[in-house]
Nucleic acid binder design. Structure first.
Length: 155
DNA sequence: GCCAACGTTGGC
DNA sequence: GCCAACGTTGGC
């Protein structure tokens, strides 16, 4: 099983919304590296750290699980969507996504600043300066450490 | 294939 | 709002 970190802006789609809706199409990813990870590397059951970005207190706030095989992102064909891509063809979709389902909300948010300070999280891809990838792979030891800091135990 | 210009991300 | 870092585009 692999581990991931997925970023979302809380005012666009926050952990509360995933908790309410239980499951979400991870649409709007328009970066080839991130797409390739969803298309090629994610497996149903993989766990992900749910990270709030671009907000007052960025950090990991929950846990989500890969819940589907990869399939074309429907928003790329929707003219009114801000994710519409006129160059993508139905017979050869450019953008691929997976579904995520809600697993848990951390009892304690693990802030970006606290992650940077933790020597046990040194080397995490998402902590690298200038990293803008909305999806990154996470090592098992780092995943378990963040869960522990967040007060969550896998059942 | 190079690279300047431009757009986006995301912390601060 | 600023700006560093990075990705994409398009002229050549």
């Amino acid at each position: 099983m692999k581990y991931w970190l997925i970023k979302s802006e809380p005012h666009v789609y926050g952990i509360k919304q995933l908790k309410t809706e239980k499951r979400a199409e991870w649409d709007g990813v328009r970066n080839y590296q991130a797409r390739n990870m969803m298309r090629d590397d994610m497996k149903i059951g993989d766990l992900a750290l749910y990270y709030h970005s671009n907000c007052a207190s960025p950090g990991v706030v929950g846990i989500a699980r890969v819940a589907s095989e990869p399939y074309p992102d429907p928003t790329q064909f929707q003219k009114r969507s801000k994710y519409y891509d006129a160059k993508s063809k139905k017979e050869d979709p450019r953008w691929i996504l997976v579904d995520f389902e809600f697993v848990a909300e951390l009892s304690e948010e693990v802030s970006l600043s606290s992650m940077k300070e933790d020597p046990r999280l040194a080397g995490m891809l998402c902590l690298r300066k200038g990293n803008r990838l909305s999806i990154t792979p996470v090592e098992g030891k780092h995943f378990r450490r963040v869960c522990k800091l967040g007060g969550w135990k896998p059942s």
